[in-house]
C-alpha cells in the first residue's frame, strides 16, 4: 500500500494543495472518531459539578475516581464480567475446535461428498431459520437459561471457517502426502504439521471469535433470563440505555445520590477496555483475516 502512495505521489507543486486538503480531511475525520472517546473518558473522571458547569469537557481539572468506585459497588458489573469471561473460556475452545477440524477436513483433496458438505454450509450462509426456530430448538433441548445455549448457537461462524479453509488449502500438499506415507493419521497431521504452519491464520480467527464472544449480547439476551448470568454488554445496556427512563424520574426528585452520567461512562470504559488495550497490538492480524476473506469473495 505504501508503494501505491509513492507511485501516485508527484513532487509537483500543483499537487501540494491537494495534499494539504486530503490531510486536513483525514485529520478532521480522525478527530471526529477520537473526540467522542476523549469525551467519554473525561466524563468518567469528572465530578457532576464540573460536568454541568464546563462548557466543553475534554479534560477534567479535578479528576476523580469516585465514579469508578461507585460502579464497582454495583454487583451487576461483576456478574457481567464473570459471564463474559465464561463465554470466552468455554466458547472460544469450542469455536476453535469445530472450526479448525471442519476447515481442515474440507481442505483435504477430493474425498466423496466434500463438495456436498461445503455447499450445504454455504447454503446456511444465505438461508437461515432466524431467531424464532433457534429459540424454540433451544427451549426443546432444555438449554435456555444455561450458557450452553449461547455457546452452541454461535459455535461455528461459516465465514471464518471458509477463511481458514482457504488458507489451509494453500499449504503445500507434499508435506501432508509424505507424512501420510510415514503412516501418520489425519488428526496427527492436523496437530503436528498443519497447525504449527497455520499459526498466523489461527491467531486471526481466535481474535475474530474472541471479539465476537466479548461483544456477544443478542443471543444471551434471548436465551438467558437469569439475574446471575448476564453478559457484560447487556449489563452496560442496562446501565446506560435502559436506565434513561428511570433517570428522568430521579432527576426530578429532590436527592441525587451519585453522578449518573459519570458512572455510565465508567461502565462504557470498563466494557471496552480489553478491546481498546489489545487492539493496537493485534490490528495487523485482523487486517490479514479480512484480506484473505476478501480475496475469496
Amino acid at each position: 500500500m505504501n508503494t501505491t502512495a509513492k507511485k501516485s505521489g508527484n513532487p509537483n507543486n500543483q499537487f501540494e494543495a491537494l495534499d494539504g486538503f486530503i490531510l486536513a480531511v483525514l485529520l478532521l475525520l480522525a478527530a471526529m472518531i477520537i473526540l467522542p472517546f476523549i469525551s467519554v473518558i473525561a466524563t468518567s473522571f469528572a465530578t457532576q459539578k464540573e460536568y454541568l458547569e464546563a462548557k466543553l469537557l475534554l479534560f477534567p481539572r479535578a479528576p476523580t475516581i469516585d465514579n469508578y468506585y461507585r460502579l464497582f459497588q454495583d454487583p451487576r458489573i461483576w456478574v457481567g464480567y464473570k459471564t463474559t469471561i465464561i463465554f470466552l473460556l468455554v466458547g472460544l475452545p469450542v469455536n476453535m475446535f469445530l472450526t479448525t477440524s471442519l476447515a481442515y477436513g474440507l481442505s483435504r483433496p477430493q474425498f466423496p461428498g466434500r463438495k456436498f458438505f461445503f455447499f450445504a454450509i454455504l447454503t446456511t450462509m444465505m438461508f437461515n431459520g432466524g431467531i424464532v426456530p433457534m429459540y424454540l430448538l433451544m427451549m426443546q433441548i432444555k438449554l435456555t437459561n444455561t450458557i450452553w445455549a449461547v455457546i452452541l448457537a454461535s459455535a461455528v461462524n461459516s465465514f471464518y471457517m471458509i477463511i481458514m479453509r482457504t488458507y489451509l488449502s494453500n499449504l503445500p500438499e507434499s508435506l501432508m502426502e509424505s507424512a501420510k506415507l510415514d503412516g501418520a493419521s489425519e488428526w496427527r497431521i492436523l496437530f503436528q504439521i498443519v497447525l504449527p504452519l497455520s499459526m498466523p491464520i489461527i491467531a486471526t480467527i481466535i481474535l475474530f471469535y474472541g471479539v465476537d464472544r466479548w461483544n456477544e449480547w443478542f443471543n444471551p439476551m434471548i436465551f438467558i433470563r437469569k439475574n446471575d448470568i448476564v453478559a457484560l454488554q447487556l449489563v452496560l445496556r442496562n446501565i446506560v440505555i435502559e436506565s434513561r427512563l428511570t433517570e428522568t424520574m430521579s432527576i426530578s426528585g429532590p436527592y441525587e445520590p451519585s453522578f449518573q452520567d459519570g458512572m455510565k461512562m465508567c461502565a462504557v470504559i470498563v466494557t471496552m477496555l480489553p478491546v481498546m488495550c489489545l487492539f493496537p497490538f493485534l490490528q495487523k492480524y485482523f487486517v490479514k483475516g479480512v484480506l484473505i476473506g476478501a480475496i475469496k469473495a
Partner: peptide, 30 residues
C-alpha cells in the same frame, strides 16, 4: 474411496453434526 478417506469424515463429523442441529433444524423449523 470413502473407506480410504474415513479419517476425513471423522475430522468434519463434529462440525457437520453442529450444522445439522443448529443450522438445518432451525432452517426446516421455518
Amino acid at each position: 474411496n470413502i473407506f480410504k478417506n474415513k479419517e476425513c469424515y471423522f475430522l468434519i463429523a463434529p462440525g457437520v453434526i453442529w450444522y445439522a442441529i443448529f443450522a438445518y433444524i432451525p432452517l426446516f423449523g421455518l
